[in-house]
């Protein structure tokens, strides 16, 4: 860990200004990831701008009939928010599938989007990693890649985004509100995170100094037919090998709207709109689900230790869609996702 300075901001503009005035500055919210990265000598900020005093903890309705999640509301407060539980139970389930109660009590919504991959090589400075040190190579390709990507990876990087919450946000088509040196803007969730390509060091499309202020959920919450299914190596405090956020709108047995996003399989939360289109207008049957699943994994590629994820993802998609269609998941079933 390198020496750094710290300041605490009370207004968004001050935070942005403070950040811009320090070369190599970083924001810190709950600190559940950046502190680890600093201790591992992976992140070396010269200055930290503390965000926890910013007035961004509210969870409140939007004029469009949706819900705005303050960037500094904790993951726990968000998951257990009455409106989230009632209208967006998919989000509740996804958040509760992640991390541990202690971490969720500290971690913020903005920070959840900003957390970095848990690739072993990214964390270990004794090994090469293009994301940590561009041009140094990728240790995971040809190495131990059990937790790595099967979709959208590149020759530079096969890391995955580790979030559960973000998979639900992708499925729900949230909007990310940011504030930066050049003012405010809104980024559709799907455009927020990036694929690695030749610039794996960039996880997302934020411009330098930009700060997430909130997440807007659209009015439609798929509160009747949803599923967040997470498969992992232990029942809690483990990142997804594969996770699936499935949300359906049904008219009788016919699917009128569908959302499908996967975690643990790509450098970003992996929403597949082509697969969603294969579901829309179709009967909610195993055959329909299988077609959508086949579409998602059509372009999947394994790297050795993670080859199994392709078949696992296919099966998980079918199961999650089935659970969604049955309406068998409820926000109160905290452990449901861990006991598929």
């Amino acid at each position: 860990m390198n020496p750094f300075t710290y300041s605490s901001a009370t207004a968004v503009e001050d935070a942005v200004r403070d950040n811009a005035s320090h070369e190599g500055a970083a924001y810190i919210g709950g600190g559940t990831n950046i502190l680890d990265l600093m201790k591992e000598n992976v992140a070396r900020p010269t200055h930290l701008v503390g965000l926890n005093k910013l007035p961004l903890t509210a969870i409140e309705p939007t004029p469009e009939g949706g819900l705005r999640l303050g960037a500094l509301a904790t993951n726990a407060d968000t998951a257990w928010n009455e409106e989230v539980k009632r209208r967006y139970p998919l989000l509740n389930q996804a958040i509760l599938a992640g991390a541990s109660p202690q971490l969720r009590n500290m971690a913020t919504n903005g920070g959840n989007l900003m957390q970095r991959t848990r690739c072993y090589y990214f964390y270990d400075t004794a090994t090469p990693c293009n994301k940590r040190e561009p041009g140094s190579g990728c240790g995971a390709i040809g190495g131990f890649n059990r937790i790595h990507a099967i979709l959208g990876a590149s020759e530079q990087c096969i890391a995955t985004h580790p979030s559960d919450m973000c998979i639900a946000l992708a499925a729900l088509a949230a909007t990310v509100r940011v504030s930066g040196p050049n003012g405010e803007r809104a980024i559709p969730f799907e455009d927020f995170h990036r694929l690695p390509g030749n610039t794996p060091e960039r996880d997302n499309n934020l411009e330098p100094g930009e700060l997430i202020t909130g997440l807007d959920l659209p009015a439609k919450g798929f509160e009747k037919n949803f599923s967040y299914l997470k498969l992992r190596d232990r029942n809690s405090y483990a990142f997804a090998l594969v996770s699936v956020a499935a949300a359906l709108e049904l008219d009788g047995d016919t699917i009128t709207d569908a959302r499908l996003a996967l975690g643990g399989v790509a450098h970003k939360p992996w929403r597949d709109q082509e697969a969603e289109n294969l579901l829309k207008g179709q009967p909610a049957t195993p055959e329909t689900f299988a077609r959508a699943a086949a579409k998602v994994v059509e372009s999947a590629q394994g790297y050795g230790s993670n080859n199994f994820k392709i078949e696992l993802a296919r099966r998980a998609i079918v199961r999650a869609l089935k659970q969604a269609a049955e309406g068998s998941q409820h926000a109160s079933d905290v452990f449901l996702n861990s006991n598929p």
Partner: peptide
């Protein structure tokens, strides 16, 4: 069901050398 320290023989180095990735059971297991 869980424990294994995985060596990457390219580097002769254990790669899952932390509590996050070297899995031992939690209460839910």
């Amino acid at each position: 069901l869980m424990e294994e320290t995985v060596m990457d023989h390219q580097f002769g180095r254990y790669m899952n050398h932390n509590y996050s990735e070297y899995h031992i059971p939690v209460q839910a297991d």
